[in-house]
């Protein structure tokens, strides 16, 4: 099996052939009576990538692409069906005791919905202090208080805000609190699952800028998950494009937008509204994402792909390298896609 591997030989996070299936069968009795087989949904299908220290790697995809499942797999909220996740050379699966606790502490997550990610009954100070207590990172109550206040200051809130409850804050401010909580575990890797998609654009800009600043200050590595390509372009060094649980392309950010290699990436770029009215040349987008329970054979994108042929319908594409991009597409490998330089830039 070919895999997406980084050029750098010591990545911070190394994901190898990660797969995750969910059992979506009807209850056992119904299956027996109706004579139906068990059904599985392949949420993540043999995904491999690696992220270097200090880098921002983005996963983009539409609904059902498996991007949020990958986030949960990496932070160990759910367990993979197969494949391996190595963090700093260690696997969460095979680590126990103190070492496991340390690994847990080093990987933290920022969630999508700032209204659901903070316990409404807790004061902000207690919310931010939870990881400090859980990982034993402070010697005294005074220590805890000082750390909480410093963190609030770092994310642009006031130290005395620790006495308030989440409902007293706006969405953007809540996301700042969630970031402060993640940072209080002193992580070096942050999984950000659509951190700004619940926020208004002007607030989104504040949060994205803050995340950049914090990355520089703490030397953080980000896995940034989003459906919004313009946000991803702003944040990421490398981008992985997901379609129905498979990674179809993994390219450096700049290259992906200038020379998308996979036909799906091209389609995604064509679908982004031109909010700047730059007159970007775009093609009409057609079709919708098929159900992940019963995905198309071969390359799952073939029903919507203008370059698909018989081979695409039957055989799952392997991964090949093309000018720094890792692409999973027969048409691209066989050079059947005409290179149209994006002259509109």
């Amino acid at each position: 099996m070919n895999s997406f591997t980084s050029i750098n030989d010591k990545p911070l996070l190394d994901v190898k052939n990660l797969s995750c299936h969910f059992d979506v069968s009807k209850p056992w009795l119904n299956r027996v009576i109706e004579g139906e087989p068990q059904r599985f949904l392949t949420a993540v299908d043999q995904v491999s990538f690696s992220i270097n220290r200090g880098e921002t790697f983005a996963l983009v995809g539409e609904s059902g692409s498996g991007k949020s499942t990958i986030a949960k797999l990496i932070v160990d909220l759910i367990h993979p069906s197969s494949g391996e996740i190595l963090f700093d050379g260690q696997s969460l699966k095979n680590t126990r005791g103190e070492a496991f606790k340390t690994l847990r502490r080093r990987i933290q997550m920022i969630f999508q919905d700032p209204f659901a990610s903070l316990n409404p009954r807790w004061r902000v100070g207690d919310i931010i202090a939870e990881p400090i207590h859980a990982f034993g990172l402070a010697k005294s109550q005074n220590d805890v208080r000082r750390t909480v206040e410093e963190l609030l200051d770092k994310v642009g809130l006031a130290g005395r805000d620790r006495h308030k409850y989440p409902h007293e804050f706006s969405g953007g401010q809540r996301q700042r609190i969630a970031i402060a909580r993640a940072l209080s575990a002193q992580p070096d890797f942050l999984v950000c699952d659509e951190p700004t998609s619940a926020l208004d654009v002007s607030v989104q800009a504040q949060i994205l800028n803050l995340m950049r600043d914090l990355q520089d200050e703490f030397g953080l590595t980000y896995l940034f998950i989003s459906h919004d390509l313009s946000v991803v372009k702003h944040m990421a060094d490398r981008i992985g494009v997901l379609y129905l649980g498979s990674m179809v392309e993994n390219s450096p950010s700049d290259q992906l937008f200038i020379q998308p290699a996979h036909p799906y990436t091209r389609m995604l770029l064509d679908a982004i509204p031109d909010h700047e009215m730059s007159g970007r040349r775009r093609k009409q987008v057609t079709g919708e994402i098929p159900s992940p329970i019963d995905p198309p054979s071969g390359c799952t994108f073939h029903p919507r792909c203008e370059f698909a042929d018989e081979k695409c319908k039957q055989k799952r594409p392997s991964i090949h390298e093309d000018q720094g991009s890792l692409v999973s597409c027969w048409a691209s490998e066989e050079k059947r896609i005409p290179t149209t330089p994006k002259d509109s830039q």
């Binding site: 706006s170 504040q206 372009k233 702003h234 970007r280």
Partner: peptide, 24 residues
């Protein structure tokens, strides 16, 4: 002006987005 500047551009890459301080 602030609203337009705060949307990340797909065409060019900027280091920092314009941000409107505070919230509505």
């Amino acid at each position: 002006q602030g609203l337009m500047g705060s949307i990340p551009s797909i065409v060019e890459r900027v280091e920092r987005l314009t941000q409107i301080p505070g919230s509505m």
